[in-house]
């Protein structure tokens, strides 16, 4: 028997989305094959990690061995600068979930961070549709041209958020609850609102390892296959996984920070293997570890 490698060429291609302002922008997506299948296609942009900063209270990431992240500055902009300096992070994700402050105060704090740093910023809102539809357009308008990635836009509030993204040239996170068809539907509706395909990122909703991770994993694989194999234009947007909060609220992470880092790291890596183009992490330890795997073990030497 003669062996011939079974190489697949896909008819579809993932959109390339540019995040952030001019000089320091970051590109995600753009591949014409499955994750890490550089033996049969081109993946111009490796998966990206973003580290999250809570707009109100910062966690303490002290851990015996893996470096010092205790007594983090409470001011989000200072923390952002520390992360950029010490970890070289490329993207910041501002998190608003659970913040018990007014919407105006949230917007004010977010804008302060956006003005203080010049790397791409993700604004991951409160998740409460009524709040986000006011908060996100407010930030979008004040920071026109910053190439922010804003969301989550859901079927309840996508109109307001899409309109702001169109008007002020921002990008949008389109969130649907673990449902391939609903994800496609929301993309169609966003396009109808005037957004370009390269302004949308799909958020299929991420669950943590041990808490339904496999559902997200398979939804991501199905979206990628629909985009690549079936050339479904409405599924070709890059995928985002927001996993920090989900991972760190598990008892397994809370009871042991080392286990928590691996819990978050394994969740991140699984989603990256399933097709996530950008992953939002909570712990700087996880960031370091996962980034090391990406650059040391998952970078195609020949392609560079």
């Amino acid at each position: 028997m003669v062996y011939q490698p079974a190489i697949d060429i896909y008819s579809g291609k993932i959109e390339e989305v540019i995040l952030g302002p001019g000089g320091n922008s970051v590109r995600i997506g753009g591949e014409d094959t499955l994750p890490f299948h550089s033996f049969e296609g081109v993946l111009p942009n490796p998966p990206k990690l973003a580290l999250e900063i809570c707009i109100t209270k910062q966690a303490d990431w002290t851990e015996e061995k893996a470096g010092d992240f205790s007594n983090l500055p409470s001011e989000p902009a200072d923390l952002a600068k520390k992360y950029i300096e010490e970890l070289g992070i490329e993207i910041i994700a501002l998190q608003f979930a659970g913040a018990a402050i007014s919407i105006d105060e949230m917007a004010k704090r977010a804008i302060k961070v956006i003005k203080a740093v010049d790397i791409p910023i993700i604004i991951y809102g409160t998740g409460v549709s009524e709040q986000d539809q006011i908060l996100l357009p407010q930030i979008a308008a004040t920071c026109a041209g910053k190439g922010l990635l804003l969301g989550p836009a859901k079927k309840e509030n996508y109109r307001e958020i899409a309109a702001a993204c169109v008007a002020y040239d921002q990008r949008v996170i389109a969130q649907t609850p673990l449902d391939v068809n609903a994800a496609k539907q929301l993309n169609i509706m966003l396009i109808k609102e005037g957004l370009a395909a390269d302004q949308i990122v799909i958020d299929p909703l991420s669950s943590a390892l041990g808490y339904g991770m496999e559902y997200t994993y398979s939804v991501m694989e199905r979206i990628k296959l629909a985009a690549l194999v079936h050339n479904d234009k409405m599924m070709q947007m890059p995928i985002i996984a927001n996993i920090g909060a989900e991972c760190w609220k598990t008892k397994e992470a809370k009871e042991d920070i080392t286990q928590g880092v691996l819990w978050e790291g394994i969740t991140a890596l699984c989603f990256i293997l399933a097709g996530a183009n950008i992953v939002l992490l909570k712990s700087p330890h996880t960031y370091k570890l996962t980034q090391q795997i990406l650059s040391k073990h998952l970078t195609d030497v020949e392609a560079n």
């Binding site: 880092v261 691996l262 394994i266 890596l269 699984c270 293997l273 996962t290 090391q292 795997i293 073990h297």
Partner: peptide, 19 residues
Amino acid sequence: FLAKEAQEEVLLAASLIAK
């Protein structure tokens, strides 16, 4: 044989479980 550190090894194993 591919990893130098313990945590690195865990994540490599995790990838191979999926793949």
